[in-house]
Design a protein around this nucleic acid. Structure first.
Lengths: 253, 253
DNA sequence: ATTGGTCAGCTTGTCTGACAAGTTCGACGC
DNA sequence: GCGTCGAACTTGTCAGACAAGCTGACCAAT
């Protein structure tokens, strides 16, 4: 909806968020090592030029993420195994030019393997789920709305393939990655994207993947999934190689 | 040290922890639904009989976990996709008989792809790192200590291979998975495991992987990594197939 | 009737100061 | 050398004040 689209204004970052991220960076970079004591709250307040309350809220964040532990009267210490409990796509590191490519490469690896397994392990029910998402994208292609439901159905298609892999961990991981980059499919399914043939190209790739899975051909499913991810990346301007086929292949970039 | 042993006294739970956990319980149980607005800070303070600072720190915890979002002047809301910002191996689901197999399968997919990329993208420095971890395992093989440092060096070896993949995201993910299952390598490197030849078998596989990477041969590196993961799983009693090579291959299990 | 502007009331964000609870370490006595 | 005590330090909690931002009611203009 148009109203939703204008809702995403750029809010200034909260001080407690900024301090928390800065400290997290120090921990993840190794500048602060496991077991090491952080500066006192008063010192951090002086260093960051913020109040003690802001520091405490930043530390509360870090505690929730398992990065630090506090002991009253003693201090705040880097946890022995900082942050091991959770994996995040953006671990507080600054964005770099390679981010999108790193993400697409990880998706290529995991989604191609999931497609391969879906070809072998799918059930009538899981195949129906994939087919329904495919049909929903066909319908979105004809939609007169500005953005329609194509991106949502695109998400659902990928997650249905992941679910058909028969490995719930892989399914959850692909869902996680998909949600973190839910905005990346929007350009393909926008009015402009559909008029420009992006959605049609994407849908052709989806159909080839569906057919390979339905045919129970894992090699064809893997190849179809790889083609699709590489093309999807290309549509966003990201160059990706589908296979490590030679020592010089990657170094051309 | 004996002094350390008596250090683990039962500390009363912090108020901010208790409030944070109580709110998290309401969210995860569905009593508070995605998009729903939480009571105001003042109301929560009255309900829990704590100061506003305690409430704010509890909310800071929930924000770090992706469970809520706050909007200044408006309120604190349950996130649209609560907890989606982090991926956890155990997502609060009960353990099932397929867990270990699911994990090894995910490792197989990601680590084999990392090895492939390491063969192409390694640098002299990253290759040295891998070699040092290999040497540390050789040394641990001869160690007279009961458990030695073999498991730690085994972890380090896998993480060095992941680092050599040239994709920091893959590196972080493999590190995350490795840390979550850091105990799984202990039996191989224990006294019994070394005497029984488990460590030697594992080390032979590590060496083959190292050599394939050093030779810059991605296909050999992938195959070596797959062999190793499949064998490692087998040493723990988990049956794993390295490839989806036919429609009936998996259904034998 | 609809649209746009204003403002009071409300809510989160930040700062400040005070005191409670707990830890650490040095001084002192035995 | 060992045990006790207390000062100094650090985190945990409370309270109050003000800043920044949001929401909805109300009124004027078209």
């Amino acid at each position: 909806m148009a109203a939703t689209r204008f809702h995403q204004i750029n809010r200034p970052q909260r001080l407690s968020d900024a301090v928390g991220l800065a400290l997290e960076k120090r921990i993840r970079s190794g500048a602060l090592t496991p077991g090491e004591r952080l500066p006192t709250e008063a010192q951090l307040g002086a260093q960051f030029a913020v109040s003690r309350a802001v520091v405490r809220e930043a530390v509360a964040r870090l505690k929730a993420e398992g990065l630090v532990e506090s002991r009253q009267g003693s201090g705040v210490f880097v946890a022995t195994r900082p942050g091991a409990a959770a994996f995040r796509m953006n671990a507080g590191l600054p964005a770099s030019a390679h981010d999108a490519r790193d993400v697409f490469e990880l998706r290529l690896i995991v989604e191609a393997a999931a497609a391969e397994r879906a070809a072998v392990r799918h059930t009538p029910q899981s195949l129906t789920q994939i087919g329904e998402a495919l049909a929903a994208m066909d319908a979105a292609m004809e939609s007169v709305a500005d953005s329609g439901d194509g991106a949502g159905a695109d998400d659902a298609f990928h997650c249905a393939v992941a679910a058909a892999s028969g490995n719930p961990l892989i399914h959850r991981f692909i869902e996680f990655v998909s949600q973190e980059f839910s905005g990346s499919r929007q350009p393909t399914w926008s009015r402009d994207g559909r008029d420009g043939g992006l959605a049609q190209a994407s849908q052709n790739e989806h159909r080839a993947l569906f057919e390979a899975i339905a045919a129970g051909d894992p090699a064809a499913a893997r190849a179809a999934a790889e083609r699709h991810i590489v093309s999807a990346a290309g549509r966003l301007g990201v160059m990706l190689s589908p296979r490590m086929s030679g020592p010089n292949n990657e170094e051309e970039t």
